[in-house]
Computed example of a mutant assay.
Amino acid sequence: MFFSPGSEEGDRVAERTDSNEHQLTLLLMLKSYQRMGCFPKRVEIPDMVVDFVRRAVDLPEGTLPFYASEKTAKNHRMLVRQRVGVRYDGKWARELAWEAIRSEAASKNNPADLINVALEKLVEAGLELPAFSTPDHMASTVRAGWRTPGSAPASGSARARTGARVCCGCWTSRSWCRVRNRRSTGLSSTPSGRPGHTSNV
């Protein structure tokens, strides 16, 4: 099963955490990120996955994932990103997604095709993937602009200011599957094409 922690992963996470709860949470963050390309909310992780990972590393029955402080959660997100060789840059990700979608809008009618183009660009750039709603909203807005006679797609910078936000994605967003599956096997590349960091988690 994909969410099975490797022995090396389990050992490193154990070394970098100070409680069973933090160990379980960091493992869930790591395995989820490898699968999805972003951090899901706790409520989005199925209980069966939580139980599976807990048993895989022999943590006590009843151990639940949670963070005692936001500082610890932030530090662990940083460790995961370093591990998989990606960066979180919301502003750049939005600009890159807008540029990709707008450049293809004249030749692609299906919003899903525009979304996939944007995701491919983000993967190539080594950026953390956004929530499904971000490029979905961008694609819908741009296509609406092209469908209006005499109009042009909305400005990317203007749309970015309306609240499009790069963040963790929904566990069940199937539209991410193709690109996120690439991430699950291709997370060893940095934006420059060099091998990604693998020694921090």
Rank of each mutant, 00 (worst) to 15 (best):
residue 81 R to Q: 04
residue 5 P to H: 00
residue 116 N to C: 11
residue 117 V to Q: 13
residue 188 S to G: 13
residue 98 W to N: 05
residue 81 R to K: 01
residue 42 R to M: 12
residue 137 H to P: 03
residue 2 F to W: 14
residue 200 N to K: 06
residue 156 G to Q: 06
residue 119 L to K: 05
residue 30 L to G: 03
residue 75 N to V: 00
residue 27 L to A: 02
residue 52 F to Q: 06
residue 80 V to R: 03
residue 137 H to L: 14
residue 131 A to C: 09
residue 49 V to R: 04
residue 9 E to Q: 13
residue 191 P to L: 01
residue 87 R to K: 10
residue 179 V to C: 04
residue 46 P to T: 06
residue 95 E to M: 12
residue 157 S to A: 15
residue 173 S to E: 11
residue 158 A to N: 12
residue 43 V to P: 15
residue 156 G to S: 08
residue 152 A to E: 15
residue 149 P to D: 15
residue 33 Y to L: 00
residue 87 R to C: 01
residue 182 R to H: 12
residue 107 S to D: 08
residue 163 G to A: 02
residue 61 E to A: 13
residue 29 M to N: 07
residue 131 A to D: 13
residue 32 S to M: 00
residue 135 P to W: 09
residue 47 D to T: 12
residue 100 A to S: 09
residue 148 T to M: 09
residue 195 P to G: 01
residue 47 D to R: 04
residue 36 M to H: 07
residue 190 T to H: 12
residue 135 P to R: 14
residue 123 V to T: 06
residue 136 D to I: 10
residue 174 R to K: 11
residue 133 S to N: 14
residue 50 V to I: 13
residue 79 L to S: 04
residue 122 L to K: 05
residue 154 A to E: 15
residue 151 S to R: 15
residue 88 Y to S: 01
residue 121 K to D: 11
residue 66 F to W: 10
residue 180 R to P: 03
residue 175 S to I: 15
residue 183 R to K: 11
residue 173 S to M: 05
residue 113 D to T: 07
